[in-house]
Design a protein around this nucleic acid. Structure first.
Lengths: 197, 197
DNA sequence: TATATTCTAGAATATATATTCTACAGCGAC
DNA sequence: GTCGCTGTAGAATATATATTCTAGAATATA
């Protein structure tokens, strides 16, 4: 062995900080290395390419994010799952900017590196199963319509409500949770009313 | 005079097509010129820089988009204003991808070119006044809370509900309008109920 | 201690892209 | 018809960035 001055983690963190500050495009290999005081050689000693680094960063972030939603679903608490987004954003501003302000593939130069394909596919499946579970939980059924509503309540709504605050790098105010709650109740009530007819 | 083979418009359209297809990053000067069969010299004969072209493209698109919302507000129809987004998206898939899938400054290399600053500022003001007008219209008041709700109903909600379809390059299905309607009614009803207390 | 291994270090290279430059062609004004 | 303007045409240039390469240092293990 030799004397590692930097860990994989350090590069990921540096990249996160830069991406959160100036966008994923600014997270160049040079910028990352410079921020860390490391030579680019050390970067390439750990990561085969910039895309792999950014891909890993995205994966690690999304997994952390989803954990809270999964936990809420495990506990059978749909509303908590929907409110997890503003909660998580408040404690993970940088990560949230990376995850919620940019499209999944937008920071990859090329496509997803082979090495990460499986991880991304697993993540996608996990997310989809989350929607199904949510639909089953609050609607008692997971058909096309129920899943579409689940996507709305669990993802589109909370992310939408939080975006403008992320853009301004500020913590989402309580009104955000309030709006999510109101909408959550309304969509479920509407579904049930529709069932009766 | 000479014989213009290309118009400003042609470059803007070519850039739009490329950006909608492969993202704004792919809209390089080379790619735009190639798609048009024009030499890059002609590009720079018309636009001082790539940023100016992309900025103008964004402005022209957002103005077109906002027009419908403004019209609905003029007619005193708040719901129509909220539903304008899915409507417009259906008839302007490419433009919508450009406008709603990326952040305003994300395709500009540098900041906004001096020449466009005023236009962007005016656009921002116009958007803010739209929120105020909406708040006044449906809440009868345009305080902090009312404006925040207006932003939610007019922008975050519709854009959020439409995003996944844009990503898949497909037209938003009717359920999208349905979800917007449900939420619209619920948020307004909640506001009124809160007033009573 | 000798040696292989793991890293640091940063220069060299390749490539993509924006931007500039030079040459020339059509067309109206004179 | 010639001059000058507006554009076309595309080669040349500059720069940013990813990636590779060469050198050498530190440590574990034999």
């Amino acid at each position: 062995m030799a004397r590692p001055k930097f860990a994989d983690r350090d590069f990921l963190d540096a990249a996160l900080a830069i991406a959160a500050e100036r966008g994923p495009l600014a997270a160049t290999v040079g910028a990352i290395a410079e921020r860390l005081g490391a030579p680019v050689g050390s970067f390439y000693h750990r990561f085969p390419s910039r895309d792999v680094l950014l891909g890993e960063l995205w994966l690690r972030t999304v997994l952390d994010f989803q954990q809270g939603i999964t936990a809420a679903l495990d506990a059978g608490d749909g509303l908590r799952a929907a409110l997890h987004t503003p909660q998580w954003v408040r404690t993970h501003l940088d990560e949230a900017r990376l995850l919620l302000l940019y499209n999944r593939d937008d920071f990859l130069q090329g496509g997803w590196p082979e090495a990460l394909r499986d991880g991304v596919a697993a993540q996608t499946r996990h997310m989809e199963s989350g929607f199904s579970r949510f639909a089953q939980l609050v609607f008692g059924r997971a058909g096309r319509d129920e899943i579409r509503r689940a996507q709305f309540l669990l993802a589109e709504l909370p992310v939408g409500a939080v975006r403008q605050h992320l853009q301004r790098r500020e913590m989402p105010p309580p009104i955000v949770d309030e709006l999510i709650r109101i909408t959550y109740d309304a969509v479920i009530a509407d579904y049930r009313a529709r069932q009766k007819r």
